[in-house]
Structures are given as C-alpha cells and as structure tokens.
Design a protein around this nucleic acid. Structure first.
Lengths: 354, 354
DNA sequence: CTGAAAGCGCTTACAG
DNA sequence: CTGAAAGCGCTTACAG
C-alpha cells in the first residue's frame, strides 16, 4: 500500500481530469451519467474516500457538528443524566443520516467553551446539552450568537435568549403530573426543584404545577417548596430530608426530575414513610431507572428520539439556511406507574421489554 | 467581521513572515522567545485559532479519535448500558487533555464501520466500545488491523485477536463474587450469561465463577446455566423466568451484568421470591442503577474513569508510536450491598453522595 | 533564528 | 459536458 488513493489516481484510471472526478463524486449535474458511473465504480474498487480535511478546507465548512454536554463539576461521571445519553444516541444517528460527523465534548459550565469549535473550523454548529445554571451561561450564549456561531440549546425558550432552542413542554408536563395527583385526592403537594431562572425547565414545570393547583382552588405552600438546582439522586435525598425536618404535613411530592424523585424516595423509605400510601411521588424525564425504581415512578416522558432529531435538523437548517430558523417544543406525555397509587398505564417495563 | 483571521493577519501585525507565525504557535524551538511571545499575544488578541483542516491536511493527521459505540439493534436508545456512558465521559476528558478531538458514532455490529474514518482521514484511531458478538466482529477487526488502522477495543484480550484491548479482569471479578456467595453459605449458584466466545467478557466471568466453585469442591450445574448474550433488563427478566420454570433448586444467581441482574430480580419479585433471603443475587459493572435497585445490588466495580484514560492513552501511544503497544487489564473490585445478605461495604449511595 | 516557496488533496469559477 | 488553473490555510524542508 503506497498511501491512500487520491482523486488523481482515479482520474488516471478513468482517463479523465481530476476535476471531473471531483464533480462526479459530488454528484454534480455537469458530468455525464456514463462518466459518473465509471468514476464511482473505480472509487469503490480502490476503496477511495474523499479526504475530509482537503474537502473541508476548500469548501470552508466542516460537515461536522459538535455536542457540548454540560455537567455539574461536582457530579461524578457515572451520574450523567441518562436522559441526555439517550438523546445523544438519537443525535449521533440523525447526524450520520444527514452526512455530518459529530464531535463530542464534556464541559463544565465555567469553561471557555464559547470560543473554540467555530474559530478553528472544527464544527459548523454546536448542540448544547445539559441542565446548567442558565444565568451563568446566558452571557456566553449571547457572545456565541454575536460571533455568528450556529447553535441550538436543549431546554425551554427564554425571553430575550440568544440562539435557538428545542425543548419539551415543561409547563404542560407539570400540569399533567399535578392534575394526576389532585385527581387521586392529594391536596398537599410539595415541590422539590429550583423554580427560578437559574433552571428554566424547573421553573416551567413549577408553573404547570401552580396552574393546576390554581385550577383546583389551591395554592402552593411556601413550606412545601425546596429549591434545589442539581438533578442528582443525592440532592433529592437531601432535599427530602430538609422537607421532612420542617414537620409540615404533605401527602405528595412533585420532584422536578426523576433522579431527584429517586433520591427523595430513598429518604422517605429511611424515615419509614410508605410510597404511595403515605406520600405519592412523581418525577420528570422518564429515565430507565424510573421504571425500575421501587415503587416504579410516575413521571413525564420526554421523547428523546424526537428531541435528538429536532436538535440536529434545527441546527442544520440554520447552517444551510434552508428554512427560517425557529424554536421547537415537544409535547409532554404522562406515564403513570405505582408511585402515586393509580393503576399504571403500562405493565412494569412493558415499554422496555417490547 | 471580515472572515476568520489567518496566520497571515498575525504575520502582518507582528512584522514577521507567516512561516514564523506558524512556528511560534506550534512552539518550535526555531523561534526566539521574544518573537514567540509577541506572536502569541497577537493571536490571543484577535482570537486566532489554527484552522483544523488546513493543519490536518498539511500534517496528514487529524488530531482526532473516534469512538464507535456498538449496540444491539433491538435495544432502544434509552437502554444503552450506562456503564459505557461513564466511560465515554472519561474518554472525552482524556482526549481533550491530550489535544485530540473526539468523534462519536453509534453503530450496529452489522454496519460497514470497518472502513470509513481512517480512509477519509477523519480520525487517527478508533476506540471500539460495546458488548457485541465478538465472533461477528472478529473478521472486521482483522481487516482493520490489516489496513493499518489504529484501534483499541474495550474488553478482554482474546487469543489471536487483532489489535489492542483494554479490559477489566473479568475472571478475577467472577471469582470474587462467587467466593462472596460461597462464604455466605450459598452452594447452589445459577449463572445467567452466555459463556462462549460470542461474549468473551461473560466467558471470563464464568471462568472465575467455575474456579471459585472448583476451589470449594463444587461444580456448576448445567441446569442452573442460562446463556443470554444481551446485557439488558428485559433479557435478564426472561432468563430468570426460564430458570424458574426449570424448577431446579438454587439459592443464588450470578448475573453476568447489572442490567441482567436487575431484570432477574424483577422476575424473582414477581414470583414471590425474596432477595436475598430466598435467593442471593450478584451483578457485574456497578452501574448507578445497581445502588438504587431494591435491594441494592452486590456487584463488581469496573473503574470507568481509569478505563477511559487507558483506552485513550493506549491508542495515542500506538498512533504516535511513543511506546511499544500493549494490552491493559484493570483490577476488579467487589462492592458488597444488600442483595446477598451480607452487610454492605458502603452506606447506600455513599459513593454517589460523596 | 528567519523567510520564500512548495505542497497537502480537494472544489469550483472560468474558458472552451 | 470537460479540462486547466487557482486557491482554501496551514507546515516544513531548504536556503540563508
């Protein structure tokens, strides 16, 4: 093997110019069908692949997207929200289908992520994933937009935001969960999660919760609100202990994420509280662990497959300027399991078992 | 903004040639300290980044690695083994530290993954992740090696294999778990997992299991062996039902992975068997779910952080030919939780909560 | 220590 | 429909 074959090798074998080879391989209409076929056959035969760097350099675009996954610096790797992992799978597949490569990077919110990929032409656009403090990232997002970097963020759209978002209808999800609890007769529903602009998704979930309560002529109790920002099991556990220590009566808990809910259930179990008999619990995300939890957790499903597809297509549309850019919002879907006492909408793990 | 700055812009501002700029930025010793400092200052000021494609094209190397994550085509995205996800986090970080970018791709074993990244110069080397049928991939691995593609595979090293591997000491892990069960007085230990070359890691775990039994003058019962190849909860659930249907007595189960163990425990619970009182259960991997399972699962911890680091450094060594290439093996560490009835080595989730 | 020049492998405007 | 030529932005042997 004398090095990788180039387009000149093909040109020589086909008896045409190198320019024609390039055109044929890119399916330019300026090449006769016959020439194209011959060239493609030779390319296949000698296992020729267009050199990514030469092509990108010349065309001034990388045909590559980058996913930046943000994590809390304190969390250990094994605690990455599984929710983002299934989204990642969908993203990689959609990228591949669209002919883009995908770079991946794990970032701390504090890093200098806002200047790198685009400046060095590594990627044509960025996909931003992760529950981070929105206010911390806001200025960096603005800078990205200012530089003309293409990017999409997973999450709710926020007034005055820079860039595009794809998110789930968090308010609707919050409403569905709360209405479900109310329908089961639970009137004192605690909320664990930071309902502020730091966590716009939690804020929206909380909004849905408030709306449902209001519709039932109830209002959220200050004493039943524990604002925590991180979506981890450990945080949920602590939060529930905080809540219990207040000794205010409640008979249901709306945890702003599944991981928080699972931690909260552990604290409840330790304190001898039964779920759902004493306390009903709901989460949000429908991560795989939710269906294996004990009792299995009632939650809201976010369609990660669709989410990944929309993130990629939104970004590519923006890059290729095919369609006017716009935000996207996915519907929330209630998944009823045993943690509230209602009869489940699915056999345990039926969805997984298929 | 009139397009991204180039090295010529810097050369002009610094009053030197473009060649000197390039040398200075790459820390060539052929540049005076003073010139270098001036050039770097200007680069920073105008936010210059070396163009990835131009650099890669000229140097004929991509400074990029690619992770190929294999999955069972039947599994849904949300069921990606969380074990590989935490490894992925470690891999991305190690790559970043080493100055390499990381491409990611999810593959089916049946795909034509063996020819693409290298041929198109997208990546200098591949990291192969996933429990797939080893025999299916064997010929493709051989082809990769033949083409001179650099790659490392996560998993046990197999006689006659092509390429390098980084893996955990599965046999040791199997021994530790089995000895633990034996020490607790369990003599009839079933095994769920395909102990064949299709799944070399399961095979090695089974070897450790056999060794421990043999040392205790016991031998594995044919009736207590359920060979399943996929590492999913659903498969574990089915396998346990298969085992129970045989109506052969057993008082412990060695599941070849945590996901299988969790599925098996669900089946046991449904059949009214108590864990650990009636049946002790152990898994393998220590995925986050293992500590949240009910009861929390005794398992073997594979150090995913170290694993990721070794995968990357092994591959980079191979690419840069700094050191002679060699396989690596990580030690297995027993994590005792409640699913066997012994007192746990850690408070529930203490590790996670830190 | 520095500069002028060649060249990495493509794509595409230009000319026919 | 095809070819000759320029050029994307670097890196590095060569000459000084």
């Amino acid at each position: 093997m004398k090095g990788k074959p180039t387009s000149f090798d093909i040109a020589y074998k086909a008896g045409v110019s190198q320019a024609t080879v390039s055109r044929a391989l890119r399916d330019s209409p300026l090449v006769s069908e016959e020439t194209r076929r011959k060239i493609k056959a030779i390319a296949k035969e000698i296992n020729y692949k267009v050199d990514k760097h030469a092509s990108s350099l010349r065309r001034q675009q990388a045909q590559t997207l980058a996913v930046l996954l943000f994590e809390d610096p304190t969390s250990d790797d094994s605690l990455i929200n599984p929710f983002f992992m299934s989204m990642l799978a969908s993203i990689t597949r959609t990228c591949a289908r669209a002919g883009y490569d995908l770079l991946i990077s794990f970032q701390q919110l504090s890093d200098d992520w806002h200047a790198d990929y685009q400046d060095s032409h590594k990627a044509d656009g960025l996909i931003l994933l992760g529950y981070g403090d929105y206010l911390t990232s806001e200025s960096k997002l603005a800078k990205l937009a200012e530089q003309g970097t293409h990017f999409v963020r997973w999450g709710p759209s926020v007034a005055g935001q820079a860039g595009l978002t794809v998110g789930c209808d968090n308010a609707q999800g919050g409403r569905l969960l709360t209405e479900h609890l109310l329908a089961l007769g639970r009137r004192k529903i605690a909320f664990i999660g930071d309902a502020s602009l730091h966590c716009p998704e939690f804020l929206d979930r909380h909004r849905g919760y408030e709306q449902a309560l209001k519709a039932a002529k109830l209002k959220p109790g200050k004493d039943l609100y524990v604002p925590v920002a991180d979506s981890t099991e450990a945080v949920g556990y602590e939060a529930m202990n905080t809540l219990l220590a207040r000794r205010k009566p409640f008979n249901a808990v709306f945890a702003a994420s599944d991981l928080i809910a699972i931690g909260a259930m552990r604290a409840l179990a330790e304190q001898g509280k039964r779920v759902p008999e004493d306390i009903a619990v709901v989460g949000f995300d429908d991560i795989p662990m939710a269906s294996f939890a004990n009792p299995a957790l009632t939650t809201v499903l976010q369609d990660t497959k669709l989410a990944g597809e929309l993130l990629v297509s939104t970004l590519i549309n923006q890059i290729e300027k095919k369609q006017p850019a716009s935000n996207a919002m996915l519907p929330a879907k209630l998944v009823i399991r045993r943690s509230c006492g209602a009869s489940p909408t699915e056999a345990p793990s039926a969805k997984r078992a298929k």
